[in-house]
Amino acid sequence: MTFFFQNLINALQWGSFYALIALGYSMVYGVLMLFNFAHGDIFMVGAYIGFGVATGLVALTSMGALALPNWLILVLTILISMFLTSFVGMIVERVGYRPLRDAPRASAAITGLMIGIILETGNLALLGAQRISFPALVQSTTYNLGGVFVTNKKIMIVLFSIALMYALHLFVRKTRWGMAMRAMAFDYVVVPLLGVPINNIARMTFAIGSALAAVAGIFFGVAYPVLDPYMGIIFGWKAFVAAILGGRGSILGACLAGFLLGFIEIFVAMIFPSTLRDFIAYSIILLILTFRPHGFFGEPYSARLSL
């Protein structure tokens, strides 16, 4: 039984990353009907920006210019990186997608892939190929709950991720901007004619998605403190799978599917030989999609941003 709970906790942490990244895919698809394939690399950029901000703050503290405790550094790192990474997202939208808004969808998908490669290799040129070690802002403490080992990091990551998803839910449901996003998702040809500023909404969607990816990047650095320029590729693919599995454009679906993907991966490795993990895990997902081709919360032939 402890074995099961241990895996459950591992899966919750792993799933939070997928969920946070899948949200970015899902929102952009909901509003603009395109997949931002650069999103996995925005996650990487977020992690690197987080690394830069955290290192800077740690250096300032150790020099005595600032007197910040580690938890405050972490909070500031998250806030500043969310802010900066949302600009990266907006630039990607402005440079990569707005000029192609009326182009065929395939062209926009290709731009996404190209921007992804540009971000990876740009980072490679800027910082070199050396692995970067994320500063240890959270002193890892392990709690032993009757044979199940939980670290303070894991608790923080899971709770904070869920809180962010809930905040996004409130934003989309309760605010004017959220309403505009939902309206755009309903029909992105007619709604702008009614006076909804399409460019602002698109920019905002990218900004929010990128900010969430930045949080995922920083948490990733806290949990797995080795960063490299290509870390976003596979993560991006898998989170994309989660976005599709959740139902294109569905926020709740993306969250749940992100966690589900984490659970499937961890529990497959628990039961079967770990060599077969991805083989079996993604076969299961293929099977789910065969029976529910629109994902859990997706609707046929519409891309409504629903909750």
Binding site: Y224, V226, Y230, M270
Partner: peptide, 12 residues
């Protein structure tokens, strides 16, 4: 290669 989470293997 490129995996970063080994929690399920290590739990086993």
């Amino acid at each position: 290669t490129k995996d970063t989470d080994f929690s399920s293997q290590l739990t086993k």
